[in-house]
């Protein structure tokens, strides 16, 4: 442990806002949200397996306004994490590191997140594809 004051590296607040920092923290935040989604999926699968009252109450819970809101949140987080995850995988493959490309892929992820989430809910609210 440090026992005297040492100079610290510059922290987040000294930097001008950039889309890249927002996308990075959103990737982590949506990942944490989706961990809850994973356990919700396990809970739903157990209800399907049990059937009867267990499934009826789970289905009613998901169909309630609050349930729909949570499902919308999960779908939004899932689409964002998926698309931005593909962006990360492309970086891992060495593609898209030039700054204009990083910004272009970032805005593409934002736009496609809105479009794909809207598409999922268009089919969902229409009563299933």
């Amino acid at each position: 442990m440090a026992n005297r004051e040492r100079p610290l590296s510059p922290h987040l607040q000294v930097y001008r806002w950039q889309i890249t920092m927002t996308m990075s923290i959103l990737h982590r935040a949506t990942g944490i949200v989706l961990v809850a989604g994973a356990f919700a999926l396990a809970w739903w699968l157990l209800a399907v397996a049990a059937g009867g009252d267990a499934y009826a109450s789970a289905a009613a819970c998901l169909a309630s306004p609050f349930g729909k809101l949570v499902l919308f949140g999960f779908s939004l987080a899932l689409v964002y994490h998926l698309l931005n995850g593909i962006r990360h995988l492309l970086w891992d493959a060495g593609w898209g590191f030039e700054l204009p490309e990083v910004y272009r892929s970032g805005y593409t992820v934002f736009v496609l997140t809105v479009v794909l989430t809207a598409l999922i809910w268009f089919f969902a609210l229409r009563g299933g594809a």
């Binding site: 999922i120 969902a124 299933g128």
Partner: peptide, 24 residues
């Protein structure tokens, strides 16, 4: 696991959406 999930998520979302309105 990311690549596996990226391949499976479209299938899972499509399957789950198709369950809306379906019985047990």
């Amino acid at each position: 696991t990311a690549i596996g999930l990226a391949l499976l998520v479209p299938w899972l979302v499509g399957t789950l959406v198709s369950f809306i309105g379906a019985d047990l």
